[in-house]
């Protein structure tokens, strides 16, 4: 199962790559909204983990853009911003999940499992 991790913080990308790879995922990385869109076109990942606050195009715009390309995209927002209403904004934009950093791997796995019809790991 292909998973695209989008985050501008290198340590986060590294930690998520390690933890997801150890759990059997094929992990790809992007460090900005723009990179995420082009990586999505090239790789068609099963799941995208999307940070919100990034230099250049932010995660919310990138989420909308990717859903334009593929309305069935499975995007999970992962963010450290505790702004009230952000979760609703992300879900309204079409994200399939919202996780506040730091999150438990189990919570992420449960979310990914819930995206039925995409095949197992």
């Amino acid at each position: 199962m292909k998973i695209l991790v989008v985050d501008d913080a290198p340590f986060i990308v590294r930690a998520l790559r390690d933890t997801l790879a150890a759990r059997g995922f094929e992990v790809h990385e992007a460090q900005s909204g723009e990179e995420a869109i082009s990586a999505y076109r090239d790789l068609k990942p099963d799941v995208v983990l999307m940070d919100i606050l990034m230099p250049g195009m932010d995660g919310l715009s990138a989420t909308r853009e990717i859903l334009n390309i593929d309305p069935a995209a499975n995007i999970i927002v992962i963010t450290a911003i505790g702004k009230p209403g952000l979760e609703k904004e992300c879900m309204d934009a079409g994200a399939k999940g919202f996780l506040m950093k730091p999150f438990r791997a189990r919570a992420l796995m449960e979310l990914i499992d819930s995206f039925s019809g995409r095949g197992g790991r």
Partner: peptide, 8 residues
């Protein structure tokens, strides 16, 4: 951010 890394 560091907590996410530590937690992972």
């Amino acid at each position: 951010t560091p907590l996410t890394v530590i937690n992972s």
